[in-house]
Every structure is written in structure tokens, then in C-alpha cells.
Amino acid sequence: MKLHLIQRSPFSNSALKDCLNTIGENDSVLLMQDGTYSLNHPLLTDIKNPTYALLQDSSARGLTTPASTKAIEYDEFVMLCSQHKHVLSWY
């Protein structure tokens, strides 16, 4: 059970692709910083894993969070980190 932090745009970096290529079925994905530009990326719509996005990072960029993704604040970010065995950053 892992939490994957996506910190780069999927249009300029392979962070999202590399992560999703190898993701486990019980893992979760959290989009943050430029990773929030992934919000409507087709790679994400294909997966069944729970997906989160840092609300302040997405709203800073003028992005809206689709229903399939849960918008969260830092409180929940920290909580998610404490609930997973491994937290991996992709950048």
C-alpha cells in the first residue's frame, strides 16, 4: 500500500507515466504542484486507484477537480502520508 506523490506535469515529464506503469492495485495517487496539470490526463482516467489532488495547487493554476479525484488540503495530505507504508515522490 503506497502513496504516490506526482509533482510534475505529465506533458513535460514522465513522472505520471512511470508511476502508473508500475502502480499496485492498493496504491493511491496524490497530484501536487505541477502534478495537478494531470487532472484531466487520459492516463489517470484509466486507473481505478484512489486519486487525490492538493486543492491549493490546483486552484492556484485555475484547474477544476473532476469528480473522480478528491480535492484535499494539507491536513489530509499529512494524514494520508501517515496512513501508508511507503510514500514515493515522482518528479
Binding site: K2, T22, K85, H86, L88
Partner: peptide, 14 residues
């Protein structure tokens, strides 16, 4: 096989 390799470890860093 990557998923189970990661899960088998105590610590992971990239």
C-alpha cells in the same frame, strides 16, 4: 514485478 519489489522493502527513496 515492480510493485511487489517496492512493497518488500523497509524503506524506499527515488
Amino acid at each position: 514485478q515492480v510493485d511487489s519489489l517496492i512493497d518488500s522493502q523497509d524503506k524506499v527513496l527515488s
